[in-house]
């Protein structure tokens, strides 16, 4: 495989894991705009253990996940007292605090960052992404997943049905933080270098967009969202010059087809985002859409029993 595809699969895998991390919080109705903070915690935990303590790969990656998960668990108690836009701001502020602390820490390299000695190829993130995706699908099909989705829909009724709403939210948030940490640890090893500037506010916004525009009702949403928004800019990299040439050709302009500016890719990405907000506000993949694609579930019970005989 060429270096380009290796790079693409690596970042796609990391983004899928990252998106699932945010998805677990969003699925309970909690918008988490602190994704970059949790990813940075995982990345720096892994980088520090690998660089300063020579720990093997599985220790550093597991630690990245645990550090982010434990901190996510600890801050979820105060932060999940916030609701709506205040929760968004609270998680956002958390990510800023993490970035600020790391930036001012000499042990973690400050603004210069930390090199990571152990390198991983595309296969580790890819396998991890598959395991995480299968795990989240499984989790969403359990009673825990059922309860997560019901807390999202109506917390008062969920409570009256016997759901411990707070426990469900804390678990989903902490588990999501751990997954974001895992994606950070994988990032650290795949790129052999971490610097805090990478884990910035726009990263948090992007990963939340993956989830919201992919759809937060089913586990398919973040998968499609992450894939779509990771691959679209890459697809545009090839098709945009061709598109410009075609437009210029149609207009009869000769020889002026210089490759378009890089920023045009992001203009198109922005337009796609706005269009999706208008036409698919509940995300690309909705629950109703998934059900429609499962013909077995569309038949009444009696008919299914007959069909089984």
């Amino acid at each position: 495989m060429s270096g380009y595809w290796i790079g693409l699969i690596t970042i796609l895998s990391i983004n899928v894991i990252f998106a699932y991390g945010i998805f677990l919080a969003v699925a309970t109705g909690q918008l988490n705009l602190g994704g970059a903070g949790f990813q940075a915690l995982g990345a720096y935990a892994a980088a520090y253990l690998a660089m300063e303590m020579d720990q093997p790969l599985f220790v550093t990656i597991a630690s990245g996940m645990i550090v982010a998960g434990v901190i996510g668990f600890a801050i979820s108690f105060p932060i999940l007292r916030l609701k709506g836009v205040y929760l968004v701001l609270g998680t956002f502020a958390f990510a800023e605090v993490v970035a600020g602390l790391i930036l001012n820490s000499d042990a973690l390299g400050g603004a210069t960052g930390l090199p990571v000695p152990t390198f991983i190829d595309w296969d580790v993130p890819a396998i991890a992404a598959v395991i995480v995706a299968v795990g989240v699908f499984w989790l969403m099909s359990t009673r825990f997943g059922l309860v997560v989705r019901s807390v999202h829909d109506d917390e008062v009724v969920a409570d009256l049905m016997g759901v411990n709403v707070r426990m469900v939210r804390v678990c989903a948030f902490a588990l999501g933080a751990a997954l974001a940490g895992l994606s950070g640890a994988l990032y650290a090893h795949a790129y052999s270098f971490v610097e805090i500037q990478v884990f910035n506010a726009s990263l948090s916004i992007y990963v939340l967009l993956y989830v919201l525009l992919g759809g937060a009702q089913t586990a398919w949403g973040p998968l499609f969202g992450a894939a779509f928004f990771t691959l679209l800019p890459e697809a545009l990299r090839d098709t945009l010059p061709a598109l410009k040439e075609a437009v210029f050709g149609a207009l009869g302009i000769e020889g002026a087809a210089t490759p378009p500016d890089e920023s045009w890719r992001f203009v198109i990405l922005g337009v796609a985002t706005v269009l999706m907000m208008i036409f698919r506000p509940e995300g690309l993949i909705t629950r109703t859409m998934v059900e429609r694609l499962r013909p077995l579930n569309r038949a009444p019970r009696a008919a299914r029993a007959e069909a089984a005989e």
Binding site: L139, R143, F144, G145, M161, G162
Partner: peptide, 27 residues
């Protein structure tokens, strides 16, 4: 956003006991 059966399964919630009931796939 839940199906009919899932809504009814939510009604069973108060009878779920222990972590096993929580991680057993229902849907």
């Amino acid at each position: 956003h839940l199906s009919v059966v899932e809504n009814v399964m939510l009604g069973q919630q108060s009878r779920a006991r222990g972590w096993r009931d929580f991680v057993a796939p229902v849907s």
